[in-house]
């Protein structure tokens, strides 16, 4: 039944570009889905560890740079460069996670902000290697993973690709978080002290989630870099981290599709409300505050109960949850 749901969403994503007539709207949706994946990366750290990162743009942005360098200076093919980049992000973020995830609450946020801005500023300084403020043009080859590169440049094509990637990531994460690893990380987020007293190692699972969240964010960054054919320090700026965080909070993280919904809402508000008033950022701020106060599980937390209808009984089988009646 689970798979059926995914199949429906897959179909919907493939059909959507056929229905959408306006090119502006299509390009908006494409951007939204890429950022949805980014927000998902930020969201799993919040969901599984309760950690709020203000520095994930460091992963989002640097992924594009690393791929570009691997292709330009080391002459790797696009596919290899992408896989290597994701692997490198996983390793670096894991090691970083071993250190930063020990730091609680606000201090963690500040530290990630500092790390993110350090990456941003150093990139800005690096004119020779990284093109400084101008960034880099990326010379993508004719095809990536066997797909014609023009498909990636076209909003409709990129929408479908990003949609499929995002769905696949949600599916895999959902599977993962239903395993004991998911139980362990939830327990740690819930009550770290008691987790220690039942013998759980705290640091390792947190570092793993941190690594995972970096890889998902980096994957979004790579999609963005392919789509625009270009990478600049802008993508590393703290405001990009903040934007992803806002999407995550607006959408909510209890459900993995929450950040996706948050990203789509964000882009629509930005596009349509931003046109009506110059104060849209202030309005957005107000909306975020309202959500934090009145709907801590975000918009997805508000609408999920409406979608669930009669399958209210959630049966627990050790280590995993099975929804009855669905």
């Amino acid at each position: 039944m689970l798979h059926f749901k995914y199949l429906l969403w897959l179909l919907a994503g493939i059909l959507l570009p056929q229905i959408v007539g306006s090119a502006t709207l299509m390009s908006l949706l494409t951007q939204a889905v890429i950022y949805a994946l980014f927000a998902l990366g930020v969201g799993i750290l919040l969901r599984q560890c309760g950690l709020v990162s203000f520095g994930h743009a460091a992963f989002f942005g640097s992924a594009g740079y690393i791929v570009a360098l691997l292709m330009r200076d080391l002459e790797f093919g696009a596919g290899t460069a992408i896989l290597l980049t994701l692997f490198a992000l996983a390793v670096v973020a894991f090691l970083l996670g071993l250190v930063v995830s020990r730091i609680p609450g606000i201090a963690f946020g500040m530290l990630t902000l500092a790390i993110g801005q350090t990456v941003y500023l150093s990139t800005l300084q690096s004119r020779e290697l990284l093109g400084g403020a101008d960034g880099l043009n990326i010379a993508w080859p004719g095809s990536i993973f066997g797909l014609d590169v023009r498909l990636f440049y076209d909003p409709a094509g990129m929408f479908v690709i990003s949609w499929v990637v995002t769905l696949a990531v949600i599916y895999l994460l959902d599977r993962l978080f239903r395993t004991r690893f998911g139980s362990i990380t939830s327990a740690i987020r819930d009550n770290e002290e008691r987790a220690r007293f039942i013998g759980l190692n705290i640091t390792l699972p947190k570092a793993l989630v941190y690594s995972l969240s970096a890889v998902v964010s980096g994957l979004a960054g790579i999609l963005s870099a392919i789509y625009t054919g270009f990478i600049s320090p802008e993508t590393l700026h703290w405001s990009v981290s903040g934007m992803a965080l806002i999407m995550t909070i607006v959408g909510g993280v209890r459900h993995l599709w929450g950040p996706v919904l948050g990203a789509i809402l964000f882009f629509f508000v930005k596009e349509y409300v931003g046109e009506l008033t110059d104060y849209w950022m202030a309005m957005l701020g107000a909306v975020v505050i309202l959500i934090v106060v009145f709907a801590p599980n975000g918009v997805s937390g508000l609408i999920a109960p409406l979608l669930e209808r009669k399958k209210r009984v959630t049966k627990t089988v050790v280590g995993k949850q099975v929804e009855a009646g669905s």
Binding site: S183, S186, N191, A195, L200, T316, V318, G319, Q321
Partner: peptide, 12 residues
């Protein structure tokens, strides 16, 4: 673990 089902946490 307030957010977790009873059996799941005891099992863990």
């Amino acid at each position: 673990f307030a957010d977790m089902p009873v059996l799941e946490q005891v099992f863990l």
